[in-house]
Amino acid sequence: MINRRLLLGYFFGIGLSLLTSCRSEVVKENFSALRYSIDTVYIDSKDEIIYLKMRLYTSDYSDSDGMYYNLNNAANQVEQINLNSLELEKIIPFEQEGPNGTGFWTTDLKVTSDQQLFLGGERSGIYSLSGKLLQSFDWFAIEKENGGLLDEERIDYQTVNPNYPKEVFAIVINDKTNSVSLRHLNSSKNSIVIHNIDPNDNYRTYTLGDLSSYNNWDPLLYIKSINDHVIVSHEYANDFHVLYPLKDSLISIAYKSVLFESKVKPTTEGDLNNSIEDRKKALKSYRSQIAYGPFVFDNKNKLYIRLSASVIYGEKDREGHLLPEIASSTLYISTFDENFNHMLDQEIPELNKIGLPKYFTKDGAVWIYQNIDDELSFVRIQF
């Protein structure tokens, strides 16, 4: 069992191999707590252009069918990518208007169950792969006395959990107080429950710009639906929050690492006078310390996994990016058992210039998004 090996601190080797479709390993000796190998796979696009402008931010992997679903927001269609055969399977169109319409903008895509997707944005709902709306969620239909949103509040990101088909969860930002909370909408009860997921005021601490208006840059918060619960975490602090909807119970967890600090040291106070250059300088400082990614779950090894990275930026601008090209970065992997007990933090020295892109787990491996010459590929860390 890998958990036992991690706890006992066995010494393992590290392998590295860069391949196109099939995987092989070249093992080299290295005294480390976690044994892994690395390879790269490329996706056959079948002469189609896979949508990479959002760097797979609005996408999700389905364990049930081995498919990866990537939203092309510009065309309002979903690319279904077969990760077993490593090729584009098909493109699924969605309507913007009408009874099955998704609206004109979508910020979230989540796999809900076999052959169903959640799309969240202007209109939020669960859709079949034929584009039919199966369940809609209307946050603004809930009265304020039942937990409905205030005028100064807006939905940031949403998710659903297959165990609760009539419910949806969202990170909600209050622009007046520059605060954030977790909301739980139960369409059967026509009510919204509010949970505090920022007891340390991290959202306000790391916001840059005018704190009283939309003229600011706010930090990333991640919301993930895993197993029978929902996890909310922050890009600049390692504490995270786990909601168990069945019990309406929220727990908060923090941990210490011997490799990096538990949170980023702020360098710039958010106010109206922050120039664009001031903000960029602050972002560079924050991400050079540490930036945390979201939690994912490795079904094979029964581990929660979280990647994080410290990034040093160069001088050359990147098209479509706020900050320049990455000069170097240090990637870390953190593992937790099924009860969220922190097990280890470890550097992945082979991946020293990728920053912290989109990632997920499949078959005991972490798949990390890479754009190589405008073609979709993944670096895989196999345990």
Rank of each mutant, 00 (worst) to 15 (best):
M1K: 05
R4D: 11
R5Y: 13
L7N: 07
F12K: 12
S17V: 11
S17Y: 09
L18H: 08
T20K: 14
S24A: 11
E25D: 13
K28V: 11
K28Q: 09
F31S: 12
R35K: 13
I38Y: 04
T40Q: 11
Y42H: 14
D47C: 06
Y51P: 04
K53G: 07
M54T: 12
L56I: 10
D60Q: 12
D63P: 07
G66T: 10
Y68F: 15
L71F: 06
N72Y: 03
N76T: 13
E79A: 04
L83N: 04
L83K: 05
N84E: 13
I92L: 15
F94H: 09
Q96H: 07
Q96M: 15
G98N: 07
G98T: 06
T106Y: 01
T107D: 08
V111M: 06
D114E: 06
L117C: 03
L119E: 02
G120Y: 04
L133N: 00
L134R: 11
Q135N: 10
S136A: 14
F137M: 04
F140H: 07
A141E: 15
K144D: 04
G147V: 12
G147Q: 11
L150A: 13
R154H: 00
I155F: 02
Y157T: 14
V160R: 03
N161Y: 06
P162N: 08
N163I: 04
Y164I: 07
I173W: 07
R183C: 10
H184Q: 09
N186S: 15
N186V: 09
S188Q: 15
N190R: 14
V193N: 14
D198F: 03
N200V: 14
D201R: 13
N202Q: 10
Y203I: 08
T205F: 04
Y206V: 09
Y206K: 11
T207E: 03
Y222F: 15
K224I: 00
S225M: 02
D228I: 02
E235C: 11
D239R: 11
H241Q: 11
H241T: 08
P245A: 09
L246Y: 13
L250C: 08
I253G: 05
Y255A: 05
K256W: 00
S262W: 07
S262P: 11
K263Y: 12
K265R: 12
K265P: 03
T268M: 14
T268R: 11
L272N: 09
I276W: 13
L283H: 07
S285T: 14
Y286M: 04
S288K: 12
A291G: 08
V296N: 06
F297V: 00
D298L: 00
N299K: 14
K300W: 02
Y304I: 02
Y304C: 01
A309D: 00
S310H: 01
K316V: 01
G320T: 00
H321N: 04
L322F: 03
Y332G: 01
S334Q: 11
F336P: 02
F336K: 05
N341K: 13
Q346V: 10
Q346C: 04
Q346W: 02
Q346D: 09
E347P: 06
E347V: 14
I348G: 00
G355Q: 01
L356W: 01
K362T: 01
W367I: 01
I368H: 00
Y369G: 00
D373H: 10
D374Y: 01
Q382F: 02
F383A: 07
